[in-house]
């Protein structure tokens, strides 16, 4: 049994049975537009990063999927299936709305950053509301380890950018909640330093009004 549930930008996502368990199979297919050597390098690098950091995230106290199996021959990963709507869908549909959902998002990011894990792809489609208040984080293909404030700031900048581009009506409110959650894990000093680097990152935007 294999059902295609989503055609992502870099991988196809299937719902499958794996050793009797309901699972997700994520397969990174070759891109026809890419040079073969670059294509192989990117697919390999991201599959390895995903497999490594998805487990490291668990040690950081974040709810990431359990890794079942990695098939090196075709760059596919089998992992735990999270059942629930993506935060993106929750924001688009007020009926699903739970208050302060972004505090949980902020706490998860804070927990990753405390262990120097940069997610690298913090869009609203990569958080899943599994059950009330329980939040899962997926998609660690662009993740890496770093203790640089700059990398953490760029990570947060991406969430902000996603909120502003796709959920502009609630962006400010949601980002404030996120920072509250982040602060509860990282503390005031660290949060304020990251926020100030984030402002620098934002000013690098083209024709942003600087200073």
């Amino acid at each position: 049994m294999e059902t295609l549930i989503r055609k992502g930008a870099e991988a196809d996502i299937y719902k499958v049975r794996w050793n009797g368990l309901l699972a997700i199979k994520k397969i990174r297919l070759p891109k026809g537009y890419r040079q073969p050597s670059l294509d192989a390098e990117l697919r390999k690098r991201r599959t390895i990063h995903e497999a490594t950091l998805i487990s490291a995230a668990k040690l950081a106290g974040v709810n990431s999927p359990l890794l079942y199996y990695l098939d090196k021959s075709n760059y596919s990963i089998y992992m735990e299936h999270f059942d629930g709507p993506r935060i993106k869908d929750v924001l688009d549909d007020p009926d699903l709305g739970t208050t302060k959902i972004f505090e949980a998002v902020g706490r998860s990011i804070g927990s990753l950053h405390r262990e120097d894990i940069i997610h690298g792809d913090l869009t609203t489609s990569n958080f899943i509301l599994i059950s009330d208040g329980c939040l899962g984080i997926i998609d660690f293909g662009l993740s890496f380890r770093s203790n640089r404030l700059e990398d953490k700031a760029v990570d947060l900048h991406l969430v902000k950018q996603t909120l502003e581009s796709a959920h502009s009506a609630v962006a400010d409110e949601m980002f404030t909640d996120l920072i509250d959650g982040y602060r509860s894990i990282s503390g005031d000093e660290s949060t304020n330093r990251i926020k100030s680097v984030m402002r620098q990152v934002q000013r690098r935007g083209r024709y942003a009004r600087s200073v």
């Binding site: 950018q161 996603t162 502003e164 581009s165 796709a166 502009s168 009506a169 990152v201 083209r206 024709y207």
Partner: peptide
Amino acid sequence: GHTAILAFSNGRWRFFGETLD
């Protein structure tokens, strides 16, 4: 002057992604 990926939403063209440098 630009390298940006944009989508129209809520009255404006908005940055989905943009060069960092």
